[in-house]
């Protein structure tokens, strides 16, 4: 068992999550927000792989594989929504759609 310890992997994962969250909260471009979401998802994937590895089980990797597959589907849906919004509002600005205002 060489290489960095578990804490290092978890720290990397947390940092990756924080970067993704920062992107989601601060970017106005819908595509950039989707990229942030992807970063957060991959932080979670990294978490699962690392924990599985250090516990000596293959389930962490299996869960990560499932998660990647789901993320792909999510991105498809998300990008489809972005395309639709771009068509209806002529913009990919996240603040453009405000039909849900109460």
């Amino acid at each position: 068992m060489n290489g960095p310890p578990l804490e290092a992997w978890l720290a990397l994962s947390a940092a990756l999550f924080a970067v993704g969250l920062f992107g989601v909260l601060t970017r106005k471009n819908l595509v950039a927000i989707l990229l942030g979401v992807e970063l957060m998802a991959n932080a979670a994937n990294l978490n699962m792989v690392a924990l599985g590895h250090f516990r000596g089980t293959p389930f962490g990797q299996a869960a990560a594989l499932f998660s990647i597959a789901l993320t792909v589907a999510e991105v498809v849906v998300g990008l489809a929504i972005v395309v639709l919004l771009a068509r209806t509002h002529k913009s990919v600005d996240a603040d453009a759609p405000s039909e849900m205002q109460g």
């Binding site: 909260l25 927000i33 603040d95 405000s98 849900m100 205002q101 109460g102």
Partner: peptide
């Protein structure tokens, strides 16, 4: 008072979610 929260903006919703 509560309806102010429902700005309809995606980023506000995300912010509240987080």
């Amino acid at each position: 008072r509560m309806r102010v929260l429902q700005s309809g903006k995606l980023r506000d919703a995300t912010y509240l979610l987080v």
